[in-house]
Nucleic acid binder design. Structure first.
Length: 499
RNA sequence: GAGGACGUAGCUCAGUCGGUAGAGCAUCGGACUUUUAAUCCGUUGGUCGAGGGUUCAAGUCCCUCCGUCCUCACCA
C-alpha cells in the first residue's frame, strides 16, 4: 500500500468511527444524474427534491460550504452543501475524496452563475476509493493504463461507456432481427477436437479427466451445419472465436463472430440478410445511411454493389482470374512470389494486393475461385467458381458467406486436397470425419453467413482500432506496479509463462 | 516476425552541451458559506522502466532486456 492509499485507508477508519459504513449499502429510489439534470429550473432554486448517487469527480471546499461534482454513466452534476445544511453529517465531507461514491439528497436548482446544482441537505457515504485517482483535468492519458485498467478509462470518459452500450445495442438488434426472421440461437462447443471451419492457427488446451488435447474453436461453422442436418432450418450463433495470430489495430486473439445458416437458401439470400442486419444495426444507433469512417464517406443505402471476383481483378490488376499466364506475369511484376504455388493461390494473393485495399464499399465481392473455398458449393454452370461472397467496407472484410457445400463425397475430397504454396494451417481444408458423416445424413441446400461483430461495431461507432470495441483486449501480463497498486516487499508478481 | 518511437513523482508533462531531479494537478496542514481547472499561505512526494558499460561525473552517451504505441508482414 503506498502513501496515498494509507491516507485514504486511515480515513476509512475515521468514517467507521462516525458510525458510517465506508463500504455503503443498498441505496433505493435513486434517479440517474442525467434525469436529475432535466428537472433543473431556468434559474434559482426549486422545491423539487431529488435523490441520486455518483462518483465524486471534483471538490471545491470553501470553509463551511462545499461544492463537489458527482458523475454516473448518464451525466455529471454539481452538488452544493454546507455545515448548516448537513448538521451532524458535516464531518463526512472532510473524509470524502475524489472518486469516492456518495449519495445525495436535496433540491434541484441553479446557482447564480447558472450551473445546474443539487442543493443537498443529505450526503450518504457509499464507497471509499482507496486507490489514488489520476489527474482530475487531463485524466490518465497513457494508452497502456487505459487498456490495462479499462474501468479508469470508463470513469473518466463517458463516451467509452457509451461505445460499449452501442455494442450491446447492435448485438441485441441482430438477435431481434434474426429471431424475428425465425432463426434459433444455439451455442456450439468452444472446445473442439478438430478446429475447423476457417483457416487459422488455433489455441491448444488440455482436458485432464479425458486426457486429451482440445482446441479453442476458430469458427462455429461445422457444428452449426450439423444443426441444419438435424432439421434446425434457421440457426445462428454469436460466437466468441479464438485465433492464435498477431495482434494489431484490427485483430484481437479472441473476437466475436456472428454465423447463421438457412436451409434452402443460398448466397444471394445471405446478401439480403447481411444488408438487413447492418441497416438494422445502424438504425438502432440512430445513424443515417451515409456515414463517415475516418476520412472515408460510406453510403449504406441498399442494395449494395455486387461485383464478381473476376470482374474486380480485371479492373484493378488488368487480368482475368482464369488467365493463368497473365496472372503469374502480373503477380511477378508486383513482387509476389509465385514459384511452386498453385495458380489460384497466386490469384488470391494478386487479388489481395491489388483489389482489397481499393474497395471502399460497401461492396459484395462474389464468385470466388473454387479451390480457395473447400466448404462452398460450386456454380453448376462453372465448377471453377464457388458461390461465395465477401463484404468489404472501407478496406475491411466485414462478412463472408457461401452457398454451403452439402455433398459429402466432394467435401471429403476437398478436405484431403491441400493447395501447393499454401501451408496447412493457412488452409480451411482439415479432415473432420465426424462432419463428413453428418453430411452423409443429408444436409439441406443452404446459405451460410459470417459477420465480424467487432469490425461492424468499429464501423458503426467510428472506432479505428479493435481495442476500442473489445472491452478488455488481451495485454501481455505485467506485475501490478502502476498506479501505486504495488504491494511493497511481498510483490505478488504475475507468473511468467514458460518459454 | 522486421523496422521505428516512447518509458522521469499517484496523474499530466518539462529537463538545454553529460555537471545539485523540476512544474501543474493530486496528497497533507491552515484560512474562507455561491465555487466551477475555486482562491490564498504552507507541506510532502523520485530505484528517472530494469540491468550493465563509458566517464572525475549519466535522466542525458553506448549495449542488453522488459513494456506500450506506430508502420510492415500474417490474419478476420
Amino acid at each position: 500500500m503506498n502513501k496515498f492509499e494509507q491516507v485514504r485507508a486511515e480515513k476509512l477508519e475515521k468514517i467507521a468511527a462516525l458510525g458510517i459504513d465506508p463500504w455503503g449499502s443498498r441505496f433505493d429510489d435513486r434517479q440517474p444524474i442525467g434525469q436529475v439534470r432535466e428537472l433543473a429550473p431556468e434559474a434559482g432554486e426549486s422545491t423539487t427534491r431529488v435523490r441520486t448517487a455518483g462518483r465524486v469527480m471534483s471538490k471545491r471546499d470553501s470553509g463551511k460550504a462545499c461544492f463537489f461534482d458527482i458523475a454516473d454513466h448518464t451525466g455529471r452534476i454539481q452538488v452544493l452543501t454546507g455545515k448548516k445544511q448537513l448538521g451532524d453529517a458535516w464531518p463526512i465531507l472532510d473524509l470524502t475524496d475524489l472518486w469516492d461514491l456518495v449519495g445525495v439528497e436535496g433540491t434541484i436548482g441553479r446557482t447564480r452563475t447558472g450551473e445546474v446544482t443539487i442543493f443537498a441537505d443529505k450526503v450518504i457515504f457509499l464507497t471509499k476509493t482507496i486507490a489514488h485517482p489520476p489527474d482530475k483535468h487531463h485524466g490518465a492519458q497513457d494508452v497502456e493504463i487505459l487498456l490495462r485498467h479499462r474501468y479508469i478509462d470508463m470513469i473518466q470518459s463517458p463516451e467509452v461507456v457509451r461505445r460499449f452500450q452501442d455494442r450491446s445495442k447492435i448485438l441485441s438488434t441482430i438477435r431481434q432481427y434474426l429471431t424475428g426472421q425465425g432463426f434459433t440461437e444455439v451455442e456450439t462447443p468452444t472446445m473442439q477436437a478438430i478446429p475447423g471451419g476457417a483457416a487459422a492457427r488455433p489455441f491448444i488446451t488440455h482436458h485432464n479427466a479425458l486426457d486429451i488435447d482440445l482446441y479453442l474453436r476458430i469458427a462455429p461453422e461445422l457444428y452449426l451445419k450439423r444443426c441444419l442436418v438435424g432439421g434446425m432450418e434457421k440457426v445462428f450463433e454469436i460466437a466468441r472465436v479464438f485465433r492464435n495470430e498477431g495482434i494489431d489495430a484490427t485483430h484481437n486473439p479472441e473476437f466475436t463472430m456472428m454465423e447463421l445458416y438457412e436451409a434452402y437458401g443460398d448466397y444471394n439470400r445471405m446478401m439480403e440478410i447481411t444488408e438487413g442486419i447492418v441497416v438494422g444495426a445502424m438504425k438502432s444507433l440512430g445513424l443515417p445511411m451515409q456515414i463517415k469512417y475516418g476520412e472515408t464517406d460510406l453510403d449504406f443505402t441498399p442494395p449494395w454493389r455486387r461485383a464478381t471476383y473476376d470482374e474486380l481483378l480485371r479492373e484493378h490488376a488488368g487480368v482475368g482470374m482464369d488467365d493463368t499466364d497473365g496472372v503469374f506475369a502480373e503477380a511477378k511484376k508486383r513482387g509476389i512470389e509465385t514459384l511452386g504455388k498453385d495458380a489460384d493461390v497466386v490469384v488470391s494473393e494478386l487479388f489481395e494486393a491489388t483489389v482489397e485495399d481499393a474497395l471502399v464499399g460497401p461492396i459484395f465481392v462474389i464468385d470466388y475461385p473454387a479451390t480457395l473455398c473447400p466448404l462452398t458449393k460450386r456454380k453448376t454452370t462453372n465448377p471453377r467458381v464457388a458461390e461465395r461472397f465477401e463484404l468489404f467496407v472501407a478496406g475491411m472484410e466485414l462478412a463472408n458467406a457461401y452457398t454451403e457445400l452439402n455433398d459429402p463425397i466432394l467435401q471429403e475430397e476437398l478436405f484431403t486436397k491441400q493447395l501447393s504454396g499454401q501451408k496447412e494451417e493457412d488452409s480451411m481444408a482439415k479432415m473432420d470425419r465426424e462432419f463428413i458423416l453428418a453430411l452423409k445424413h443429408g444436409m439441406p441446400p443452404a446459405g451460410g453467413l459470417g459477420i465480424g461483430i467487432d469490425r461492424l461495431v468499429m464501423l458503426l461507432t467510428g472506432s479505428t482500432t479493435i481495442r476500442d470495441v473489445i472491452i478488455f483486449p488481451l495485454m501481455r501480463p505485467k506485475p501490478v506496479g502502476a498506479l501505486g497498486l504495488d504491494e511493497e516487499g511481498e510483490g505478488e508478481e504475475t507468473p511468467t509463462p514458460s518459454e
